[in-house]
Design a protein around this nucleic acid. Structure first.
Lengths: 147, 147
DNA sequence: ACTATATATCTGCATATGCAGGTAATTTCA
DNA sequence: TGAAATTACCTGCATATGCAGATATATAGT
């Protein structure tokens, strides 16, 4: 045990703070979604595809603030399990249209209680006011940090 | 192009929000640290080790809100490049003590301008008040979400 | 002292993340 | 129209993340 081992380390680093928060939150959602056989990444993708039916890889990646190559790979397990289909876009044959399958929609709906439980876990520690405040500030920050 | 493709999708999902924010912030830090040959993960690890000299893998993982196995692997590239050393703890030979090497400390100090530039990029979009507010709320949230 | 349990770390597996660089299709423009 | 530039996606590589399960050491209970 060293001199600082038990001390607080109030880091001023924004990356450290947001990455810790994202890890902890991801852990909670992943644990509560595990019984339904989805990660929060996957649950979120299915939800986006339910809303943005027929969207392209690039457009969805942009909405997710994610590199298109990352999205390509994140879709792989969902394709393999038949939850998502990629079909060639006839208007632009470079592009692929993403859609939720019937099975995928069912999977998404079935997992909702897990997601809901995680949402409540977070809402409970933030409270309604701080919850709304943080949401709007962070959404604005993401928007302002877009190139 | 589908009906919803250009529309806003105000997701209420906390995981979606925090993960997007973490991705964007990570991208910014990684880009600005790239000339110095470090990722923000690595820069952050060196900074923690500068402060917590001789800490164990498990203790550091806890501080980072990170699985110990993840930390083990994140340390690998830093060990390989000689920035970090793992030595057996004589008090408890199951444990390993992590230390910054001289080279590691130099690397850390050299990369500071990249980190500083990223910090300022974030601070500029948040402003001082929201910056402080978000920091304290998020730190408190992380604390409250610890098991 | 011996056994059972607990702890600290590591490896194997699967997914998550993004850069560099490749291929195919589209668009620009001389 | 045909070459050049752009766009959309993909694969290869490296790091980031965590669970299950293995190994080695330490501690507790008898």
């Amino acid at each position: 045990m060293t001199a600082n081992a038990n001390r607080e380390f109030k880091s001023t680093c924004s990356a450290s703070r947001f990455r810790k928060a994202a890890r902890r939150i991801t852990q909670i959602y992943d644990q509560l979604l595990e019984p339904y056989g989805l990660t929060i990444t996957q649950y979120g993708l299915l939800g986006h595809l339910k809303y943005f039916d027929g969207i392209s890889v690039g457009s969805l990646a942009e909405k997710l603030v994610m590199d298109p190559t990352t999205l390509t790979r994140n879709l792989r397990p969902l394709e393999r399990q038949g939850f998502v289909s990629l079909t060639q876009d006839d208007k632009d044959r470079r592009s692929r249209k993403l859609s939720l399958t019937k099975t995928g929609l069912e999977k998404y709906k079935a997992a909702r209680p897990g997601w809901q439980a995680a949402q409540e876990r977070i809402a409970n520690v933030l409270g309604p006011e701080d919850g709304r405040l943080l949401s709007s500030k962070i959404d604005q920050m993401i928007e302002d940090l877009r190139e």
